[in-house]
Amino acid sequence: MIAEPGSLKAMAPRSPEEELAVQATAILAEYVRTPTTDLLKKLAPVIVELRSHHRLNDGSVDWSGRSPAYRKIIAEIYRDAHVSDDGLDRLQTALRYHVGNVLRERAPSNDLQRAGLTDVSPRERTTTSRQAFQAMKEASAPRQDIPRLTAYAQALLEYVDEAAACDLTAKENEAARIALQSVQSRAAELLVRLRDAGRNTPTRK
Rank of each mutant, 00 (worst) to 15 (best):
Ile2Tyr: 01
Ile2Cys: 00
Pro5Leu: 15
Gly6Glu: 15
Lys9Phe: 12
Lys9Ile: 06
Glu17Gly: 06
Glu17Met: 01
Ala21Asn: 02
Val22Ala: 13
Gln23Glu: 08
Ile27Asn: 05
Leu28Met: 11
Glu30Tyr: 07
Glu30Arg: 12
Arg33Thr: 04
Thr34Val: 10
Pro35Trp: 03
Pro35Glu: 06
Asp38Met: 03
Asp38Leu: 05
Asp38Glu: 12
Leu39Gln: 08
Lys41Val: 00
Lys41Arg: 14
Ala44Gly: 06
Ala44Trp: 10
Ile47Tyr: 01
Glu49Tyr: 01
Glu49Val: 05
Glu49Leu: 11
Leu50Thr: 00
Leu56Gly: 01
Ser60Ala: 10
Val61Leu: 02
Trp63Glu: 07
Arg66Phe: 11
Pro68Asp: 09
Ala69Tyr: 08
Lys72Tyr: 01
Ala75Tyr: 00
Tyr78Gly: 12
Tyr78Gln: 13
Arg79Ile: 01
Asp80Gln: 10
Ala81Ile: 15
His82Ser: 14
Val83Ser: 06
Gly87Met: 14
Arg90Val: 14
Thr93Lys: 14
Thr93Asn: 13
Ala94Asp: 13
Arg96Lys: 14
Val99Trp: 09
Gly100Asp: 11
Asn101Trp: 07
Leu103Gln: 14
Glu105Asp: 13
Ser109Cys: 12
Ser109Leu: 14
Asn110Leu: 14
Asn110Asp: 14
Asn110Thr: 15
Ala115Leu: 10
Thr118Trp: 09
Val120Gln: 13
Ser121Asn: 08
Arg123Ser: 08
Arg125Gly: 12
Arg125Val: 01
Phe133Pro: 01
Gln134Glu: 08
Met136Gly: 00
Glu138Phe: 11
Pro142Lys: 15
Gln144Thr: 08
Pro147Ser: 05
Ala151His: 01
Ala151Pro: 03
Tyr152Met: 13
Leu156Lys: 10
Leu156Ile: 12
Ala165Glu: 03
Thr169Val: 08
Glu172Asn: 08
Asn173Met: 10
Arg177Ala: 13
Arg177Glu: 15
Ser182Cys: 02
Ser185Gly: 02
Ala188Val: 06
Leu190Pro: 00
Leu191Gly: 05
Leu194Thr: 01
Asp196Lys: 00
Ala197Lys: 03
Ala197Phe: 03
Gly198Thr: 09
Arg199Pro: 00
Arg199Phe: 13
Arg204Gln: 04
